[in-house]
């Protein structure tokens, strides 16, 4: 019975032979999940590419109506959260539990700052009637339809990104609780590592969303 029934632990589930094998599998699993995420957002990036190339001027005008300073500041906030996340992973590699918790809480807080700012921006759109739908109105251009397309894409893309942030927030909260319970050591910190990959990926999506949505031909204005 060499095969079966080693004691199941967190670091070594029943189906794996070695802890390294389990860690490799988890990491690969997360990378492949990120592949599916790339394709998921990819559909929207495609729609964006098609419509921006069809209506370049209208997209430029609409993009200029977004507040670029808030957008840039929020990008910095998100980059900060990525920085603290990577520090959390580093602390986990070194097995420093208190540092993990500290960095994770910082990451979570920065994530919520980002979402708060995002909510403020969305609210602005409500006030300005830039919400796609029957009440939509964008001042100063004849073609309302394509302008609405820009804002549909804006809301779809930032909304989906925010949803991913929320899910990330949930994961971080769970990690904080588990770390406090002492679940992670220098030898077993795969969940922290893998959650880090997810968080950085969500950051990368925003790295593309920011120039694509906020920075189209700013010089025109």
């Amino acid at each position: 019975m060499a095969n079966q029934a080693h004691e199941e632990t967190l670091a070594l589930r029943e189906q794996f032979d070695t802890e390294a094998q389990q860690k490799d599998a988890s990491t690969l699993g997360m990378w492949i999940f990120l592949v599916t995420e790339i394709m998921f957002f990819g559909g929207m990036f495609l729609a964006y590419t098609i419509y921006r190339s069809t209506y370049p001027e209208i997209f430029a005008v609409c993009s200029s109506s977004l507040n670029v300073y808030i957008g840039a500041a929020n990008t910095v906030v998100l980059l900060c959260s990525s920085f603290t996340m990577v520090l959390a992973v580093r602390s986990a590699q070194l097995g420093r539990q208190r540092a993990i918790v500290f960095n994770l809480i910082l990451t979570l807080a920065l994530g919520f700052v980002f979402l708060g700012v995002k909510a403020y921006e969305w609210n602005e759109k409500f006030v300005e009637h830039h919400i796609p739908g029957p009440g939509f109105h964008f001042e100063g251009i004849a073609q309302q339809g394509p302008a609405q397309l820009f804002f549909s894409l804006y809301f779809a893309m930032t909304g989906l990104h925010a949803l991913h942030m929320l899910i990330g927030g949930g994961i971080l909260t769970w990690l904080i609780i588990r770390t406090k319970q002492g679940a992670f050591t220098a030898e077993y910190m795969t969940p922290v590592d893998v959650a880090g990959l997810y968080w950085h990926f969500v950051d990368i999506i925003w790295i593309f969303l920011f120039p694509l949505l906020y920075l189209i031909d700013r010089h025109l204005k």
């Binding site: 492949i32 592949v35 790339i38 394709m39 990819g42 990036f45 495609l46």
Partner: peptide, 13 residues
């Protein structure tokens, strides 16, 4: 894996 994902995104677009 990463390269493949970017390639497929390229195919789509």
């Amino acid at each position: 894996v990463l390269l493949g994902a970017l390639m497929w995104l390229g195919i789509l677009i």
